[in-house]
Design a protein around this nucleic acid. Sequence first.
DNA 1: GTCTATAACGAGATAGAC
DNA 2: GTCTATCTCGTTATAGAC
Lengths: 205, 205
Amino acid sequence: MPRMKEKTAIPPEADFEVQPTRARILEVGERLVQVRGFNGFSYADVAGELSMTKASLHYHFPTKADLGEAIIARYAGRFFEALAAIDGELTHAPAKLSAYAELYADVLRDERMCLCGMLAAEYDTIPSRMRDAVVGFLDDNESWLAAVLEHGRHDGSLSFAGTSSVTARSIVSGLEGAMLVARPYGAVERFETAAKQLLASLAGT
Amino acid sequence: MPRMKEKTAIPPEADFEVQPTRARILEVGERLVQVRGFNGFSYADVAGELSMTKASLHYHFPTKADLGEAIIARYAGRFFEALAAIDGELTHAPAKLSAYAELYADVLRDERMCLCGMLAAEYDTIPSRMRDAVVGFLDDNESWLAAVLEHGRHDGSLSFAGTSSVTARSIVSGLEGAMLVARPYGAVERFETAAKQLLASLAGT
DNA sequence: GTCTATAACGAGATAGAC
DNA sequence: GTCTATCTCGTTATAGAC
């Protein structure tokens, strides 16, 4: 007799409820923020895509600020899972940086802006808890990169002037800017070229 | 007896009409787009700041798209005037690049985002003529930078791998990204450090 | 050229039935 | 949990007086 929380062989999809409503809302909302911005989409847009009513959305997320916060939290969670996966799979610092840049490229291939880059542009108009989450996301990115940079400098695979922290910031801003500018052209190559050049400038001796 | 259009010693301010209404609208609108985004401000915001009614704004700019187009045109005009001034005052390529970065820094010190960087983020939601103007602005920036880079490489004051065009794009995206990320922190130093590092990587042999 | 007044619509949000 | 119905407010935009 299965105890509570015991895993079974039956995958969640067998529930005939592929994804709970809350998760589907977050998925659609995330994409809309990345493509149109937080000020560029409405509850009606989300409801329309999910064929449900605005009122139902408000049951799951009472205010748009609640929805926005949850979108960032989900995004950040997945992003840092991806960074943990990179840490688990790769040890060579330059390879980690390439994998990091590839995360951005994947977002751009989906015709989206980095969620937090988009929200950074809209910073002055978003709810304050969302602001804090954006800054936290950027800080955590820099910390992860700084650790990689420090490691790479130590083993000679990377070389750069200044602190690892400052260089980490240059990487974040360089990649965010490359996404920002590449998107109006619909040209992922623009991003890839800029990213390649940016990482090449950190090549070890 | 003064002929038409002949210049007088009386400055325009003596007209007791310091700036025509149209120009004041554009000035306020420009700042609002740079701070809050095109989707983040309304005719009511502009009207409020100028102590006039929304209806009067519509007399000067029938639609918000008209206003947006005019804002970009004015901004681009002033920006390229500034580039022409740089060309007139400086010949050393690295000095020109520093002056170029300083234009960005000045915008950021005013707590604004680059107009076209902001509109690049909102790209998918802005009127099509505004989109074209944004891309044109980016193209013209790259052209100017590419010319400076080409010149600097020729006289040995600059050194970089790849074409001047690709490197120009890296500069634009690097500076735009540095602005984007620095603004949530309200920290101009973040931008300055990133810009310095970016330009230093182009130092000549 | 600026105003009052208002139209027409979409936004975020709530009440209450099912 | 999802719906219908509605509220309130803000938005872009227009008509017409001054």
